[in-house]
Design a protein around this nucleic acid. Structure first.
Length: 504
RNA sequence: GUCCCCUUCGUCUAGUGGUCAGGACUCGGGAUUUUCGAUCCCGCAACAGGGGUUCGACUCCCCUAGGGGACGCCA
């Protein structure tokens, strides 16, 4: 059977890095097995609903290339894909559970619950549960007569439906990532399944939906691990077969704390030991989507023995992914590795593909680009040493306009008393070149150096400074070829006039 | 507090009884006499601790410590 996986976020705000990884793993597992990747919106908490959160989510998935096969946008045979539109379905199953004795109505008010907890709270038991030990003293359909219950229901008294967790049972299951996990039923509370507002809780809704949507593998964060027994009991009570479970390790800040949006003002000025959990921040900063995907994929997964690749495209990941190779331990999100991967992915992108993006970036920086052909050659020269796409503007501006200033440190170090003379000689030589190619330029320069009894660097460095204004960049001769003879000569002459004055 | 999960270089990790414990990022050094945050090479750096099991443990078991998660009419 082809697997069906789902990413089931709740739209309570921004898209978390950990959430994106959960989506990624669900996607990768489904695609690796020729299965179906489903998006389901878990919006059953009306009080936490955030305007625009669903749109954010959809955008982020789209950006990352994790397109669902079924979901709110695509539709599908198992919709609706918003849980808020499925309340009657959940209610039906909840009633069924009550009828079969697996669940019961409870009329306890929040005050009643607080009183109960207050009463039971102790050092040994700081968080009393609503469970088999207390449900006999509470206001519910187990302690009330049928008539009373019927009365309250008819009156519309606020009530919830709770799961009746049996005593003295142990729930055991196999998690693909963690192996066998067991938990005693005495540790589980009588979970609310339907809230007094008529909406289901996550626990009921996810079980019902996963079954109805024929989800085969539940891949989600570790925070759900301890509620699996409840879900298992639900599957059993409903007479359903539970899906395979896989609980992913968490992702943390460099200092080991939980990633929190509250810690962050800006990505460029992160608090010590913290990292931004909001995927949108990374998109905004201009990270390559492949780099983000690559990075978070490696946070908890690796291709295994003998395969020491670090750089993966989404397709590579689809081909290699397996849940068996997902790590158990939590990982720390390392921005340095992300930055390195970002540079790798820029290098890996074909120059033609880079073209429109670079053009946009240059335009945003106020740099006029006249010829795509020219831009293509510039990108070819630069992309190997760019860490961010924005670097094309910062470090490539001189390809489009003459330098207005010269790096003082480079000037001090590289500009000698004979530089003017040598550069003007150099100009005389290169104007004769036809065609104006890197190799021809190099020969001319080497010849001149020999003739003048100086090392090549004596000319190379001042030329670079004169032409680009900086001390770093691509190989000089390739750079000059792309710039063209006219530009090179013009810039050298300008520099020969301006720099001596700067040097003093 | 209870229950559950986790623990190899600073970080991400390989490793499933016998390895000089491997790779990657970061950092340091060297090379490239054309720079560089590019490239290549080299280097620093780890099995949390204690018991077992075994001829032999990073690998299996137990305990301790540390970290994390859950304990809501939130997901």
């Amino acid at each position: 059977m082809k697997p069906r996986t789902r990413f089931a976020p709740s739209p309570t705000g921004f898209v978390h890095v950990g959430g994106l990884r959960t989506a990624l793993y669900n996607y990768l597992f489904a695609k690796n097995n020729g299965g179906t990747f489903i998006l389901r919106i878990e919006d059953t908490d009306r009080s936490r609903y955030v305007e625009g959160a669903v749109e954010n989510l959809l955008e982020a998935l789209e950006w990352a290339g994790l397109i669902p096969d079924e979901g709110p946008v695509q539709g599908g045979d198992y919709g609706p894909y918003y849980q808020s539109e499925r309340t009657d379905i959940y209610l039906n199953y909840a009633r069924q559970l009550v009828e079969n004795g697996h669940a019961y109505y409870a009329f306890d008010t929040p005050e009643d619950l607080e009183a109960m907890r207050q009463h039971l709270r102790s050092k040994q038991n700081p968080n009393p549960k609503y469970d088999a030990s207390v449900r006999g003293e509470m206001k519910n359909s187990l302690t009330m007569t049928d008539v009373q219950v019927k009365n309250e229901l008819e009156k519309g008294t606020p009530r919830v439906i709770r799961l009746k967790v049996p005593e003295d049972r142990t729930f055991e299951f196999d998690d693909i990532i963690r192996g066998t996990v067991a938990r005693a039923s005495s540790e589980i509370d009588d979970q609310v399944l339907v809230k007094s507002d008529g909406y289901p809780t996550y626990h009921l809704a996810n079980v019902v939906d996963d079954h109805l949507m024929q989800i085969t593998h539940v891949i989600r964060g570790e925070e759900w691990l301890s509620s699996v027994p409840k879900h298992l009991l639900l599957y059993e009570s409903l007479g359903w077969q539970p899906p395979v479970m896989a609980h992913l390790p968490l992702i943390f800040n460099p200092d080991g704390s939980k990633m929190s949006k509250r810690d962050i003002q800006s990505l460029d000025d992160l608090p010590q030991g913290k990292v931004d959990p909001d995927v949108a921040s990374y998109i905004k900063k201009g990270y390559e989507k492949q780099a983000i995907i690559n990075c978070i994929a490696l946070l908890g997964w690796n291709p295994g023995e003998g395969d020491e690749r670090q750089v993966f495209s989404l397709n590579d990941l689809v081909a290699e992914f397996s849940l068996q190779r997902v790590n158990k331990a939590a990982a720390i999100f390392d921005l340095q590795k992300l930055d390195w991967l970002n540079a790798e992915h820029i290098k890996a992108r074909p120059t033609v593909e880079l073209l429109p993006d670079v053009r946009t970036i240059l335009q945003q920086a106020g740099i006029q680009v006249n010829s795509d052909d020219y831009l293509l050659r510039v990108i070819d020269l630069l992309k190997i040493r760019m860490h961010f796409m924005a670097d094309f503007a910062d470090k490539g501006a001189y390809f489009f306009r003459d330098p207005v200033e010269y790096d003082p440190d480079v000037l001090k170090k590289r500009w000698k008393d004979d530089s003017v003379k040598l550069l003007l000689e150099f100009c005389k030589e290169i104007v004769k070149l036809s065609p104006f190619t890197a190799s021809a330029i190099e020969s001319a320069l080497r010849e001149l150096a020999e003739c003048e009894q100086v090392g090549g660097g004596r000319i190379i460095h001042p030329v670079r400074l004169a032409v680009s204004g900086t001390g770093v960049g691509p190989g000089l001769f390739e750079m000059l070829e792309v710039l063209g003879a006219d530009t090179v000569v013009r810039r050298i002459k300008t520099a020969c006039e301006k720099i001596p004055a700067l040097k003093q």
